[in-house]
Structures are given as C-alpha cells and as structure tokens.
C-alpha cells in the first residue's frame, strides 16, 4: 500500500503545478489604483489661542475632490473646541499674482459625534513653482481669528478621482469631481460625483479676501447623463449595459451607477442638463461598434483607469 500512497502523493505534486499562474484578481484591480481609507493629519496651523489640525485622506491634498476634517484645540485649555463658526477659503495665486479659488464649503459643519468640523474642497490644479495654494481659515469666537497657510496640492494618481472644469452653454463655470468609487471593480459601481458652479460676482473685487469673488455652490437638481466607453481602438467603442445617469442625492452629491465590463481605460462620457432639461454641456457619442478606431468622446468627459 505504501507504494500507492507514494504514487498518489507524487501525483498530487504534479497536479498542483499549473503551467500558467491564475490571475490574482484582487491584486489586479488594485495595480493602477491607490485607495485611501484613513483620514490623517495633513496640516497643523496654530494661532495664539487655537491649534487647527486638518485631516484628509492619506494626509495629503490632491487635485480634485478632498474631504477635510478640522480639529480645533484651545491651546490654553488643551481641549477640543466645539461648535465654533469656522470658515474655510482656498486661494490660488498664479505667476501674475492673480487670485482665484475653487469649489469649497465656506462654512464648515460641526460634527458632534466625531468632534470635528467637516468640509470639502475641489482643487482645480496642482501646486507648482508658479501656482500656489493658500488656505484661509477664520475662527470666530469673541473676535475673528484668521489663520492662513500655504499648502501643497499634489496630483491625483488615482484616475478614478479625476475632475473636469468647463464653461457651460449658459456661460457659467462648472466643476465635476469624481468622489467614488476609488477602486472600481469589473461590476456595477456606485458612481458619486460632486458638481459645483462658480457664482459669478456682480461687483468688482473689493479688499482681499472679498468673498463675493470666491463664491461657489453645489449645482442643484441637474442631471448628468452617463455613457461609459472604452476608448482603446481595439475595443471598438465598447460600452456596458445597465448604467444609471447621475442625479442629485439628499446630501447634494450626484449619484449614478456605472458598469465596467473589464479593467483598463474607460471614458465616462457625459451630457449635462439643467433642471429644465436644457443642455449645459456634452455631446452624444456614437454607439456604433468600430473595432480598430479609437472611441470618440463627448465634449464633456472624464477618463478613468483601473
């Protein structure tokens, strides 16, 4: 019998050795994607009375959508400060000294449970030698405590968090920033985007920082029609079924569903319409299957890769 056992054992060894390895799917879909889960301290600014700590995902500011959590400590008592009115303003200064901002939440919201002030900012460009981003934070107790600090905005390596800025047919400036999924799968993915517009000032700029010059708001009640396609020529303008257009949810963000049928480069082609169904931006793309030809893109699109 020993012989047989030996024989079987030898066979088992042969069996376990496949010629080619199977793909590790989980690793596969994470190769192009850096996923962030933890909010970590990106920056601390101190004034005489307060220490402000800004937490972001992966302790960095990225081009595109950033959720920010501010923790405020009273340096005298060393206690966390609750429910103070706090404002947040990012300012970009370019080579010519022109100042501009980007979509952001100006009045931060205090979250009782987590004991932080929550906001967001959609950086429209990275910091470089000529462009620099500065944060202006005002804390109001009996008086206004103004803090400001130059920060570094890094490029977003995860293309699933890309953003686009454009001028609509109504001459307004709009911003669409992807928020989720950070790491899509070959599956149905809940697609979340923030859509913002610049509130054009009616008066000329006053003394800096003149808030009327840097006012942004969420776009309310529009619809972002979605047509995802693979631009790779060999994929012949391949698309996927059962996608859902993005509509605004209760929290003001836009929610839809995108199906990715395989990993690789995808283009999210959009058509953006206002609440009256008027076209703001975007063109219909061909639905024809055209192998060998790179897929055409809508004039409004975001490329992703996973």
């Amino acid at each position: 019998m020993k012989k047989y056992i030996f024989f079987i054992a030898t066979l088992c060894l042969i069996i376990t050795s496949c010629t080619l390895d199977k793909t590790d799917y989980e690793a596969e879909i994470n190769t192009e994607v850096t996923e962030y889960f933890e909010f970590e301290e990106a920056l601390t600014i101190s004034s005489a009375t307060y220490k402000v700590s800004i937490e972001t995902l992966n302790a960095s500011f990225f081009k595109g959508y950033n959720e920010i959590h501010l923790k405020i400590i009273d340096t005298q008592t060393n206690e966390s400060v609750k429910g103070l009115p706090i404002t947040f303003l990012p300012i970009l200064t370019d080579a010519n000294g022109n100042k501009s901002s980007c979509p952001h939440l100006y009045n931060l919201e205090y979250n009782e449970e987590e004991a932080y002030y929550k906001g967001y900012v959609v950086f429209t460009s990275e910091s470089d030698t000529t462009n620099n981003w500065q944060l202006y934070i005002d804390l109001q107790d009996e008086e206004v405590n103004t803090l400001n600090e130059v920060i570094t905005v890094e490029s977003q390596t995860n293309m699933n968090l890309n953003m686009t800025a454009f001028t609509g047919n109504d001459d307004e400036q709009y911003f669409i920033a992807l928020i989720a999924p950070q790491s899509p799968g070959v599956s149905e993915n809940d697609l979340v985007a923030g859509i913002y517009k610049y509130n054009q000032p009616t008066t000329s700029e006053g003394e800096f920082p003149d808030l009327s010059q840097y006012s942004y708001s969420k776009v309310e009640g529009y619809t972002l029609y979605l047509d995802p396609r693979m631009p790779e020529p060999s994929m012949g303008n391949h698309s996927s079924p059962n996608n859902q257009d993005l509509t605004q949810g209760e929290d003001g963000l836009y929610y839809g569903v995108v199906n990715y049928t395989m990993t690789g480069n995808w283009t999210l082609n959009f058509i953006f319409k206002n609440e009256n169904g008027e076209l703001i931006k975007g063109t219909e793309v061909s639905t024809d299957f055209t192998p060998g030809i790179e897929g055409e893109k809508s004039e409004l699109y975001i490329d992703i890769l996973f």
Partner: peptide, 20 residues
C-alpha cells in the same frame, strides 16, 4: 471552472484589459 480573458491594447505600454 475558471476562465480568464486578458486583452492587450495596441499600444502595449498601456494597461491590459482583464475580465473573467
């Protein structure tokens, strides 16, 4: 039963496309 499909883009430096 497992079957994989990996497509190579024309520009081989681009990311391959994978599905089961």
């Amino acid at each position: 039963s497992i079957a994989e499909m990996r497509m190579y883009p024309q520009d081989r430096s681009e990311r391959t496309m994978f599905a089961y």
